[in-house]
Simulated scan of single mutants.
Amino acid sequence: MLSGRRYLLDLSPEQQEMCEEFGKICRSVWNTALEQRREYRRRGAWMNYAPQCAELAAAKAEQPWLKAAPSHALQQTLKDLDRACRDHGTFQVRWRSKARWSPSFRFPDAKQISVERLGRKWGRVKLPKLGWVRFRWCRPPGGEIRSATVSRKGGRWFVSFLVDDQAAACRQHATPGTAVGIDRGVKTAVVTSDGDFYDRPFITAGEIVRYRRLQQRLARSKRGSANRQKTITAMGRIMSRVSDRRGDFCVQTAARIVAKNALVVLEDLRIKNMSASASGSVAEPGRNVRQKAGLNRAILDKGWHRLELALTNAARYTSTRVVKVNPAYTSQRCSACG
Rank of each mutant, 00 (worst) to 15 (best):
I203F: 06
R217G: 10
Y211T: 07
A254P: 10
I203C: 03
S243D: 11
C250I: 02
A189I: 00
I238W: 03
P201D: 12
T192I: 09
T204G: 07
S225T: 14
D183G: 04
K187Q: 11
V242A: 03
T188C: 10
D244R: 09
Y211D: 04
R200K: 11
Y211M: 07
R246V: 08
V251I: 07
M239V: 06
D165W: 02
I232W: 02
T253A: 11
I208Y: 04
D244N: 15
C170E: 15
I232G: 05
R256F: 03
R246W: 05
R200E: 15
I203Y: 05
S225I: 12
A167H: 13
T204M: 00
G181K: 01
I238V: 14
P176H: 03
A254M: 03
K230H: 09
R171E: 14
I208V: 15
G185S: 04
R220M: 08
S193H: 06
R210T: 13
R200M: 14
I238S: 00
M239C: 13
F197W: 09
V186N: 04
A219F: 07
A205I: 08
G177V: 04
T253H: 05
D196I: 03
R213T: 09
G181C: 03
A167W: 05
D199W: 00
Q229N: 06
A179S: 11
I182T: 05
P176F: 04
A174G: 15
K222R: 13
I203M: 12
M235T: 10
I182H: 01
I208T: 10
D199R: 00
R223K: 15
I232S: 04
A174Q: 09
M239I: 01
K187V: 13
S240Q: 08
L218E: 09
T231H: 07
S221N: 06
A169S: 13
Q172R: 12
R213E: 12
C250G: 02
I232F: 00
Y211V: 08
R237C: 05
A234S: 07
S243L: 01
A174D: 15
T192Y: 02
R217C: 06
V190N: 01
Q229A: 14
N227E: 12
R171C: 07
Y198V: 03
G247A: 11
D194K: 06
T231M: 00
H173E: 08
G195I: 07
S221P: 06
T204E: 05
F197K: 12
L218T: 10
G195Y: 01
C170L: 13
G247P: 01
Q216R: 15
C250E: 11
R228F: 00
V209C: 03
D194F: 07
A219T: 15
R212V: 02
R212C: 10
S221C: 12
T233I: 05
A219V: 10
V251K: 12
D183P: 11
I203G: 09
R184C: 09
I238R: 00
F202W: 07
M235E: 07
I208K: 13
I232L: 10
A189V: 05
R171V: 10
T231R: 00
A167N: 08
F202M: 10
V209E: 09
Q252E: 07
V191S: 14
F249N: 04
S225C: 06
R217K: 13
H173V: 08
T253V: 14
Q229K: 13
Q166D: 14
A226S: 14
P201H: 01
Q215H: 06
Q172K: 04
R213G: 10
